[in-house]
Amino acid sequence: MLGQTLLTRRIGKKRVIAETGAGQHGVATATAAALFGMECTIFMGEVDTQRQALNVARMRLLGAEVVSVTTGSRTLKDAINEAYREWVTSVETTNYVFGTAAGPHPFPAMVRDFQSVIGREARQQLLDRIGRLPDAVLACVGGGSNAIGIFDAFLDDADVRLIGFEAAGDGIDTLRHAASIEKGRPGILHGARSYLLQDEDGQTVESHSISAGLDYPGVGPEHAYLHDIGRAQYLPASDDEAMEALRLLSRTEGIIPAIESAHALAGALRVGRELGPDAVLLVNLSGRGDKDVQTAGRWFGLFDEGATQE
Protein backbone atom coordinates (compact mmCIF):
# COMPACT_ATOMS: atom_id res chain seq x y z
CA MET A 1 0.00 0.00 0.00
CA LEU A 2 2.83 2.37 0.90
CA GLY A 3 4.53 1.16 -2.26
CA GLN A 4 1.46 1.90 -4.34
CA THR A 5 1.18 5.35 -2.76
CA LEU A 6 4.82 6.11 -3.60
CA LEU A 7 4.06 4.96 -7.13
CA THR A 8 1.14 7.38 -7.21
CA ARG A 9 3.48 10.23 -6.30
CA ARG A 10 6.01 9.09 -8.88
CA ILE A 11 3.47 9.16 -11.71
CA GLY A 12 2.37 12.62 -10.66
CA LYS A 13 -1.14 11.97 -9.42
CA LYS A 14 -2.57 13.84 -6.46
CA ARG A 15 -5.36 11.58 -5.33
CA VAL A 16 -5.69 7.96 -4.28
CA ILE A 17 -8.80 5.83 -4.05
CA ALA A 18 -9.13 2.38 -2.55
CA GLU A 19 -11.69 -0.22 -1.63
CA THR A 20 -11.75 -1.76 1.80
CA GLY A 21 -13.54 -4.64 3.43
CA ALA A 22 -12.53 -4.76 7.07
CA GLY A 23 -11.17 -1.24 6.83
CA GLN A 24 -7.51 -2.18 7.32
CA HIS A 25 -6.50 -1.34 3.77
CA GLY A 26 -8.63 1.80 3.88
CA VAL A 27 -6.97 2.97 7.08
CA ALA A 28 -3.53 2.19 5.66
CA THR A 29 -4.28 4.09 2.45
CA ALA A 30 -5.75 7.03 4.36
CA THR A 31 -2.65 7.09 6.57
CA ALA A 32 -0.31 7.16 3.59
CA ALA A 33 -2.41 9.82 1.87
CA ALA A 34 -2.23 11.99 5.00
CA LEU A 35 1.52 11.47 5.16
CA PHE A 36 2.07 12.42 1.52
CA GLY A 37 -0.55 15.18 1.42
CA MET A 38 -2.82 13.48 -1.09
CA GLU A 39 -6.57 13.47 -1.40
CA CYS A 40 -8.09 10.13 -0.51
CA THR A 41 -11.46 8.47 -1.09
CA ILE A 42 -12.25 5.04 0.32
CA PHE A 43 -15.10 2.86 -0.95
CA MET A 44 -16.60 0.51 1.60
CA GLY A 45 -19.73 -1.64 1.41
CA GLU A 46 -22.54 -0.38 3.59
CA VAL A 47 -22.64 -3.69 5.47
CA ASP A 48 -18.95 -3.28 6.26
CA THR A 49 -19.22 0.35 7.33
CA GLN A 50 -21.63 -0.90 9.98
CA ARG A 51 -19.63 -3.86 11.25
CA GLN A 52 -16.33 -1.94 11.05
CA ALA A 53 -17.55 1.44 12.28
CA LEU A 54 -14.36 2.09 14.23
CA ASN A 55 -12.24 1.94 11.08
CA VAL A 56 -14.66 4.29 9.30
CA ALA A 57 -14.02 6.82 12.06
CA ARG A 58 -10.25 6.23 11.79
CA MET A 59 -10.26 6.91 8.06
CA ARG A 60 -12.27 10.08 8.51
CA LEU A 61 -9.94 11.24 11.30
CA LEU A 62 -7.08 10.79 8.84
CA GLY A 63 -8.84 13.10 6.40
CA ALA A 64 -10.21 10.54 3.96
CA GLU A 65 -13.66 10.64 2.42
CA VAL A 66 -15.45 7.32 3.07
CA VAL A 67 -18.13 6.37 0.55
CA SER A 68 -20.65 3.85 1.77
CA VAL A 69 -21.53 1.60 -1.18
CA THR A 70 -25.18 0.61 -1.29
CA THR A 71 -25.28 -1.40 -4.52
CA GLY A 72 -25.25 -5.18 -4.91
CA SER A 73 -24.30 -7.14 -1.81
CA ARG A 74 -22.98 -3.95 -0.17
CA THR A 75 -19.68 -5.63 0.77
CA LEU A 76 -16.12 -5.75 -0.58
CA LYS A 77 -17.02 -6.92 -4.09
CA ASP A 78 -19.32 -3.96 -4.60
CA ALA A 79 -16.84 -1.54 -3.06
CA ILE A 80 -14.39 -2.69 -5.75
CA ASN A 81 -17.02 -2.18 -8.48
CA GLU A 82 -17.65 1.35 -7.26
CA ALA A 83 -13.94 2.13 -6.98
CA TYR A 84 -13.51 1.01 -10.60
CA ARG A 85 -16.34 3.30 -11.68
CA GLU A 86 -14.72 6.21 -9.88
CA TRP A 87 -11.28 5.35 -11.22
CA VAL A 88 -12.34 5.26 -14.87
CA THR A 89 -14.01 8.64 -14.34
CA SER A 90 -11.05 10.35 -12.67
CA VAL A 91 -8.08 8.41 -13.98
CA GLU A 92 -6.21 11.51 -15.09
CA THR A 93 -5.76 12.74 -11.53
CA THR A 94 -6.33 9.60 -9.51
CA ASN A 95 -4.56 6.33 -8.84
CA TYR A 96 -6.33 3.23 -7.57
CA VAL A 97 -4.47 1.64 -4.67
CA PHE A 98 -5.76 -1.91 -4.81
CA GLY A 99 -6.04 -3.69 -1.47
CA THR A 100 -5.62 -7.29 -2.39
CA ALA A 101 -3.64 -9.49 -4.72
CA ALA A 102 -6.57 -9.81 -7.12
CA GLY A 103 -7.97 -7.61 -9.90
CA PRO A 104 -6.39 -6.96 -13.28
CA HIS A 105 -2.71 -7.25 -14.07
CA PRO A 106 -0.43 -5.83 -12.73
CA PHE A 107 -2.22 -5.57 -9.39
CA PRO A 108 -1.81 -9.21 -8.29
CA ALA A 109 1.93 -9.12 -8.95
CA MET A 110 2.40 -5.60 -7.58
CA VAL A 111 0.50 -6.28 -4.37
CA ARG A 112 2.37 -9.54 -3.88
CA ASP A 113 5.74 -7.87 -4.35
CA PHE A 114 4.92 -5.11 -1.86
CA GLN A 115 3.47 -7.59 0.65
CA SER A 116 6.35 -10.03 0.27
CA VAL A 117 8.52 -8.13 2.76
CA ILE A 118 6.73 -9.97 5.58
CA GLY A 119 7.64 -13.36 4.14
CA ARG A 120 11.27 -12.47 3.52
CA GLU A 121 11.70 -11.07 7.03
CA ALA A 122 9.90 -13.99 8.67
CA ARG A 123 12.02 -16.48 6.78
CA GLN A 124 15.25 -14.74 7.79
CA GLN A 125 14.14 -14.41 11.42
CA LEU A 126 13.41 -18.13 11.61
CA LEU A 127 16.82 -18.97 10.19
CA ASP A 128 18.49 -16.56 12.63
CA ARG A 129 16.58 -17.63 15.73
CA ILE A 130 15.91 -21.35 15.34
CA GLY A 131 18.25 -22.25 12.52
CA ARG A 132 15.68 -23.84 10.28
CA LEU A 133 12.68 -23.25 8.10
CA PRO A 134 9.15 -23.87 9.37
CA ASP A 135 7.24 -27.04 8.58
CA ALA A 136 4.26 -25.02 7.43
CA VAL A 137 3.30 -21.42 6.72
CA LEU A 138 -0.31 -20.51 7.40
CA ALA A 139 -2.37 -17.49 6.45
CA CYS A 140 -5.97 -16.50 5.93
CA VAL A 141 -7.16 -15.99 2.34
CA GLY A 142 -9.87 -13.63 1.18
CA GLY A 143 -8.43 -11.90 -1.87
CA GLY A 144 -5.21 -13.32 -0.54
CA SER A 145 -2.73 -10.45 -0.20
CA ASN A 146 -1.32 -11.28 3.23
CA ALA A 147 -1.13 -14.94 2.26
CA ILE A 148 0.69 -14.39 -1.00
CA GLY A 149 3.00 -11.96 0.80
CA ILE A 150 4.12 -14.53 3.35
CA PHE A 151 4.05 -17.52 0.93
CA ASP A 152 6.20 -15.83 -1.69
CA ALA A 153 9.51 -16.19 0.16
CA PHE A 154 8.90 -19.90 0.72
CA LEU A 155 7.77 -20.93 -2.78
CA ASP A 156 11.13 -22.50 -3.57
CA ASP A 157 11.40 -24.27 -0.19
CA ALA A 158 9.73 -27.48 -1.30
CA ASP A 159 9.61 -28.96 2.22
CA VAL A 160 7.66 -26.04 3.63
CA ARG A 161 3.92 -26.59 3.39
CA LEU A 162 1.94 -23.52 2.43
CA ILE A 163 -1.63 -23.52 3.70
CA GLY A 164 -4.23 -20.85 3.13
CA PHE A 165 -7.45 -20.75 5.13
CA GLU A 166 -10.57 -19.53 3.40
CA ALA A 167 -13.57 -18.27 5.34
CA ALA A 168 -16.08 -21.10 5.63
CA GLY A 169 -18.68 -18.81 7.25
CA ASP A 170 -21.53 -20.99 8.49
CA GLY A 171 -19.85 -23.99 6.82
CA ILE A 172 -18.82 -24.87 3.27
CA ASP A 173 -21.85 -27.10 2.86
CA THR A 174 -24.14 -24.15 3.49
CA LEU A 175 -24.63 -21.28 1.03
CA ARG A 176 -23.07 -18.86 3.52
CA HIS A 177 -19.30 -18.95 3.08
CA ALA A 178 -16.47 -17.30 1.15
CA ALA A 179 -14.48 -20.39 0.15
CA SER A 180 -13.78 -19.53 -3.50
CA ILE A 181 -11.11 -22.15 -4.13
CA GLU A 182 -12.89 -24.95 -2.26
CA LYS A 183 -16.37 -24.31 -3.63
CA GLY A 184 -15.97 -22.04 -6.65
CA ARG A 185 -15.02 -22.69 -10.25
CA PRO A 186 -12.93 -20.68 -12.72
CA GLY A 187 -14.51 -17.42 -13.80
CA ILE A 188 -13.74 -13.78 -14.49
CA LEU A 189 -14.31 -11.04 -11.95
CA HIS A 190 -12.65 -7.65 -11.61
CA GLY A 191 -10.38 -8.24 -14.58
CA ALA A 192 -8.85 -11.54 -13.49
CA ARG A 193 -9.61 -15.18 -14.16
CA SER A 194 -9.53 -17.20 -10.98
CA TYR A 195 -11.74 -19.32 -8.74
CA LEU A 196 -15.04 -17.60 -8.22
CA LEU A 197 -18.27 -18.18 -6.34
CA GLN A 198 -20.85 -17.97 -9.09
CA ASP A 199 -24.10 -19.49 -10.23
CA GLU A 200 -24.66 -21.58 -13.34
CA ASP A 201 -25.02 -18.42 -15.46
CA GLY A 202 -21.77 -16.87 -14.27
CA GLN A 203 -23.47 -14.34 -12.01
CA THR A 204 -21.30 -13.69 -8.99
CA VAL A 205 -22.76 -15.20 -5.84
CA GLU A 206 -22.64 -13.23 -2.60
CA SER A 207 -20.12 -14.48 -0.09
CA HIS A 208 -20.55 -14.60 3.67
CA SER A 209 -18.09 -14.42 6.51
CA ILE A 210 -18.08 -12.94 9.98
CA SER A 211 -14.85 -11.33 8.87
CA ALA A 212 -15.33 -8.36 6.54
CA GLY A 213 -11.82 -8.75 5.14
CA LEU A 214 -12.45 -12.29 3.90
CA ASP A 215 -15.95 -11.63 2.61
CA TYR A 216 -15.05 -11.76 -1.10
CA PRO A 217 -16.38 -14.23 -3.70
CA GLY A 218 -13.13 -14.30 -5.68
CA VAL A 219 -9.49 -14.95 -4.85
CA GLY A 220 -6.21 -13.72 -6.26
CA PRO A 221 -5.18 -15.59 -9.42
CA GLU A 222 -1.79 -16.61 -8.07
CA HIS A 223 -3.51 -18.58 -5.31
CA ALA A 224 -5.60 -20.36 -7.94
CA TYR A 225 -2.34 -21.21 -9.70
CA LEU A 226 -0.58 -22.41 -6.53
CA HIS A 227 -3.63 -24.55 -5.79
CA ASP A 228 -3.73 -26.03 -9.28
CA ILE A 229 -0.04 -26.94 -9.34
CA GLY A 230 -0.30 -28.36 -5.83
CA ARG A 231 2.25 -26.01 -4.26
CA ALA A 232 -0.18 -24.58 -1.73
CA GLN A 233 -3.18 -26.09 -0.03
CA TYR A 234 -6.39 -24.23 0.76
CA LEU A 235 -8.63 -25.30 3.60
CA PRO A 236 -11.78 -23.86 5.13
CA ALA A 237 -12.11 -22.34 8.61
CA SER A 238 -15.58 -21.48 9.85
CA ASP A 239 -16.85 -18.48 11.79
CA ASP A 240 -17.10 -20.68 14.91
CA GLU A 241 -13.54 -21.98 14.64
CA ALA A 242 -12.13 -18.53 13.94
CA MET A 243 -13.88 -16.95 16.91
CA GLU A 244 -12.73 -19.73 19.24
CA ALA A 245 -9.16 -19.22 18.00
CA LEU A 246 -9.52 -15.47 18.54
CA ARG A 247 -10.56 -16.04 22.13
CA LEU A 248 -7.80 -18.58 22.73
CA LEU A 249 -5.02 -16.28 21.52
CA SER A 250 -6.46 -13.39 23.49
CA ARG A 251 -6.44 -15.42 26.71
CA THR A 252 -3.16 -17.29 26.28
CA GLU A 253 -0.96 -14.62 24.70
CA GLY A 254 -2.72 -11.38 25.49
CA ILE A 255 -3.03 -10.63 21.77
CA ILE A 256 -6.44 -9.90 20.28
CA PRO A 257 -6.08 -10.84 16.61
CA ALA A 258 -8.19 -9.62 13.73
CA ILE A 259 -11.03 -12.00 12.93
CA GLU A 260 -9.45 -12.45 9.49
CA SER A 261 -6.16 -13.63 11.00
CA ALA A 262 -8.05 -15.80 13.50
CA HIS A 263 -8.98 -18.02 10.54
CA ALA A 264 -5.27 -18.80 10.12
CA LEU A 265 -4.98 -19.41 13.86
CA ALA A 266 -7.92 -21.81 13.73
CA GLY A 267 -6.09 -23.61 10.95
CA ALA A 268 -2.90 -23.66 13.00
CA LEU A 269 -4.69 -25.52 15.78
CA ARG A 270 -5.70 -28.23 13.32
CA VAL A 271 -2.36 -28.43 11.53
CA GLY A 272 -0.49 -28.37 14.86
CA ARG A 273 -2.38 -31.39 16.11
CA GLU A 274 -1.57 -33.17 12.88
CA LEU A 275 2.15 -32.35 12.85
CA GLY A 276 2.84 -32.81 16.55
CA PRO A 277 4.71 -30.84 19.22
CA ASP A 278 8.08 -30.67 17.44
CA ALA A 279 6.67 -28.98 14.36
CA VAL A 280 7.32 -25.30 13.66
CA LEU A 281 4.36 -23.39 12.28
CA LEU A 282 4.62 -19.86 10.96
CA VAL A 283 1.25 -18.12 11.21
CA ASN A 284 0.67 -14.74 9.60
CA LEU A 285 -1.06 -12.65 12.23
CA SER A 286 -2.00 -10.14 9.59
CA GLY A 287 -4.18 -7.79 11.59
CA ARG A 288 -5.08 -6.78 15.07
CA GLY A 289 -8.49 -7.17 16.58
CA ASP A 290 -9.25 -3.75 18.06
CA LYS A 291 -11.61 -3.11 15.17
CA ASP A 292 -13.41 -6.39 15.87
CA VAL A 293 -14.13 -5.97 19.57
CA GLN A 294 -17.73 -5.04 18.91
CA THR A 295 -18.31 -8.11 16.73
CA ALA A 296 -16.55 -10.32 19.29
CA GLY A 297 -18.51 -8.75 22.14
CA ARG A 298 -21.77 -9.65 20.45
CA TRP A 299 -20.54 -13.11 19.43
CA PHE A 300 -19.50 -14.06 22.95
CA GLY A 301 -22.20 -12.07 24.76
CA LEU A 302 -19.69 -9.85 26.56
CA PHE A 303 -21.73 -6.70 26.80
CA ASP A 304 -23.64 -5.81 29.95
CA GLU A 305 -27.33 -5.78 29.42
CA GLY A 306 -28.53 -2.26 28.66
CA ALA A 307 -25.09 -0.97 27.73
CA THR A 308 -25.17 1.02 24.50
CA GLN A 309 -22.83 -0.32 21.86
CA GLU A 310 -24.00 1.26 18.65
Binding site: T71, G72, N81, T204
Partner: peptide, 26 residues
Protein backbone atom coordinates in the same frame (compact mmCIF):
# COMPACT_ATOMS: atom_id res chain seq x y z
CA UNK B 1 -27.94 -8.28 -17.03
CA UNK B 2 -24.89 -9.10 -14.90
CA UNK B 3 -24.16 -9.04 -11.19
CA UNK B 4 -21.11 -6.75 -11.45
CA UNK B 5 -21.67 -4.16 -14.19
CA UNK B 6 -18.59 -2.02 -13.60
CA UNK B 7 -19.06 0.06 -16.76
CA UNK B 8 -22.58 1.09 -15.89
CA UNK B 9 -24.00 4.06 -14.04
CA UNK B 10 -27.01 3.98 -11.75
CA UNK B 11 -29.80 4.01 -14.36
CA UNK B 12 -28.57 0.85 -16.05
CA UNK B 13 -27.41 -0.75 -12.79
CA UNK B 14 -30.90 -0.40 -11.34
CA UNK B 15 -32.56 -1.86 -14.43
CA UNK B 16 -30.23 -4.82 -14.75
CA UNK B 17 -30.43 -5.59 -11.03
CA UNK B 18 -34.21 -5.52 -11.28
CA UNK B 19 -34.03 -7.92 -14.22
CA UNK B 20 -31.83 -10.30 -12.22
CA UNK B 21 -34.16 -10.11 -9.26
CA UNK B 22 -37.08 -10.87 -11.57
CA UNK B 23 -35.34 -14.10 -12.53
CA UNK B 24 -33.42 -13.27 -15.71
CA UNK B 25 -31.44 -16.22 -17.07
CA UNK B 26 -28.75 -16.11 -19.77
Amino acid sequence: PYSDPVMDGLAIQKATQAALQAGFRV
